[in-house]
C-alpha cells in the first residue's frame, strides 16, 4: 500500500537517481609525506587571487574573492542607525561570517556552528583600526561574509579580511588605509605562506598577519599552535612582504571598478 501511494505530504525524490561521483584528484596525486618539499607551490608563494568589487548590487559595497578553492563573498551595508538604546559616540562595526553548508569537507550545520563567530572576531579585529569609526556617531556598519568554499581556516580569515576591506572601500566608508592579510604555517622547519587545509593540518603552528601596507602598520596578528619567537618574526616578515603584493591586486581591482 505505502509503496504504491504517492505521498503528497512529503518531498518526494526524483524517479531516477544516480550515486554521486566524487573528485578523486587529490587521492591520485598522493599525500604529502614528512620531509618532502611543498607540493604545487614554492614555500613563499600564495595562491593566485581573483577579486571583484561591487558584485552584490543591493549592498552599499561588496566584494568577491577567490583563491583557488577558497571562495568568499562579502557585502557591506550601512552606515545605518544603531538599533540599541545606548548612545555611541563612535560607529560600530558588525562583522558576521557564515559558512555555506557545503563549504567544507564535512557538512556545516547552520546556526549550530561555533567557528564562524571566532572568524568574525578575527576579521573584526583586523579591520577595526582602519575604519574611521569616530566619523560615524550613532551608526552601525554591517559586514556580512559568506564563505562559499573553504580551504583552510587561516586562509579564510586572510581572504575574508581582504574581501571585507575591499567591500568597505567600495561602499565609500572612510578608512585610514586598506587592510591586507596573509596567512603562514610552519611545517617542520619551513615556513609556508597561504596554507591550504591539508597543509594547515600537517603544520606545527600557524599565523595570520593583517596590516596596512600603505601606512606600514600592523593591525592584528592571530597565532595558533607552537611557534618559536624567531619563527613568528620570520612569518610576520614574510606575510608583510606578501601583503604589499596583495595590496597591489586590491588596488588594481578597485581602480578598475571605480
Amino acid at each position: 500500500m505505502a509503496q504504491t501511494g504517492f505521498d503528497r505530504r512529503r518531498i518526494n525524490g526524483p524517479e531516477q537517481s544516480h550515486p554521486p561521483t566524487f573528485g578523486t584528484q587529490d587521492e591520485v596525486e598522493g599525500r604529502w609525506i614528512v620531509g618532502q618539499p611543498r607540493k604545487a607551490r614554492k614555500p613563499m608563494d600564495i595562491r593566485p587571487i581573483f577579486l571583484q568589487p561591487g558584485l552584490i548590487d543591493q549592498a552599499n559595497g561588496s566584494a568577491y574573492v577567490e583563491t583557488e578553492r577558497t571562495k568568499i563573498a562579502c557585502a557591506v551595508y550601512g552606515p545605518r542607525q544603531t538599533k540599541s538604546t545606548a548612545y555611541h559616540e563612535k560607529g560600530k562595526l558588525n562583522v558576521e561570517v557564515k559558512f555555506t553548508p557545503f563549504s567544507c569537507e564535512r557538512r556545516r550545520a547552520p546556526m549550530r556552528d561555533a567557528e564562524d563567530r571566532s572568524l568574525a572576531v578575527a576579521i573584526h579585529q583586523a579591520l577595526l583600526p582602519a575604519v574611521q569609526v569616530e566619523l560615524l556617531p550613532k551608526s552601525t556598519i554591517d559586514i556580512f561574509l559568506t564563505i562559499i568554499e573553504a580551504d583552510g581556516i587561516e586562509a579564510c580569515v586572510a581572504a575574508g579580511t581582504v574581501a571585507a576591506s575591499t567591500a568597505l572601500a567600495d561602499a565609500g566608508i572612510e578608512m585610514i588605509g586598506l587592510v591586507m592579510s596573509c596567512a603562514a604555517a610552519v611545517v617542520e622547519q619551513e615556513t609556508w605562506l597561504d596554507p591550504t587545509e591539508e597543509e594547515a593540518r600537517s603544520a606545527r603552528g600557524s599565523l595570520v598577519l593583517s596590516c596596512m601596507p600603505a601606512l606600514g602598520t600592523v593591525t592584528s596578528v592571530w597565532q595558533s599552535g607552537k611557534l618559536r619567537p624567531e619563527e613568528v618574526l620570520g612569518c610576520m616578515d614574510a606575510c608583510q612582504e606578501r601583503c604589499s603584493d596583495i595590496h597591489s591586486v586590491v588596488a588594481q581591482a578597485l581602480l578598475e571598478n571605480a
Binding site: N60, P79, R80, Q81, Q132, L136, P137, K138, S139, A169, D170, A171, G172, E174, M175, I176, G177, A214, L215, L254, L255, A258
Partner: peptide, 24 residues
C-alpha cells in the same frame, strides 16, 4: 592621505574627496 577611493579636488580652500553616498 586619502580615506576614500576617488579623485582629490580643491573646493575653495578645502581639499576633499567627494563621493555621493548615503550618509547618516
Amino acid at each position: 592621505r586619502a580615506s576614500l577611493v576617488g579623485i582629490p579636488r580643491n573646493e575653495g580652500s578645502t581639499l576633499t574627496i567627494s563621493r555621493v553616498r548615503p550618509h547618516p
